[in-house]
Amino acid sequence: MDAKAKNNEFTIAGKTFSSRFLIGTSRYPNQQIMMDAIEASGAEIVTVAVRRVSQDSGGEGLYDLLGDRFHLLPNTAGCFTAKDAVVTAELAREALETNWVKLEVIGDDETLFPDVEQLLRAAEELVKKGFIVLPYCNDDPITCKKLEDMGCAAVMPLAAPIGSGMGIRNPYNLRIIREQCSVPIIVDAGVGTASDAAEALELGCDGILLNTAVAGARDPVKMAKAMKLGIEAGRYAFEAGRIPRRLYATASTPTDGAIEL
């Protein structure tokens, strides 16, 4: 295997993926752009949601479109209680024949921040029921550690509010989470552009899950490619190890043999 493929490779719950980029399927201008953007992203894990069928939607056909080609990861978006999230996860498991779930239990509609109490309750119950739980959580090391300890397969801290595009608002917390958790860390929410994605990987996060930053870009397909490259660059930089920050200059050109007049 070449170095590039290995650089991108990471493992969640014993399953190895060839891309550190997880991408959402919502809010693209149209279906073709969505398909092209997912293609350009190189993502293998693609998120979807579970909703009531309505007479007019009558089966969106998303499962037929993506089911064979990608690892579909259902979310529990829109759930405010552990109970709703657990039933939604169970419905998703039945619909997709997968026990993987992106667990979201939100506290309010305006911030979409997680309701930690309900999230922990839902995570515990879903782990007990045999789910591979990937929880969307705060960038809080204590919550992340609790989620890891109860058996979640990864932790997915937000970098900034969902859809805000504000980037990594608390890099120091992400560093602490990296030091304290051994499960994969996937930054989920807040990434606005490729440099944000690169920064998260440079901090030692293992992957990025995003949707709006690509779907809402002027050119979603190009942004998907930019994110892919940002993630790859960030990972290389993390593995290479950055130089320490210094207040004063250090000459890169040797001074020996310079003329003196």
């Binding site: 579970v50 069928v53 089966g59 037929d64 039933v87 498991r93 039945e94 619909a95 997709l96």
Partner: peptide, 22 residues
């Protein structure tokens, strides 16, 4: 009756809060 092709994937049903396997 609700416009869903029951032979297709991507669909699930709960009865009184309990998922009913296909």
């Amino acid at each position: 009756e609700n416009g869903v092709d029951s032979s297709k994937g991507g669909v699930a049903v709960a009865l009184n809060g309990e998922v009913v396997p296909r």
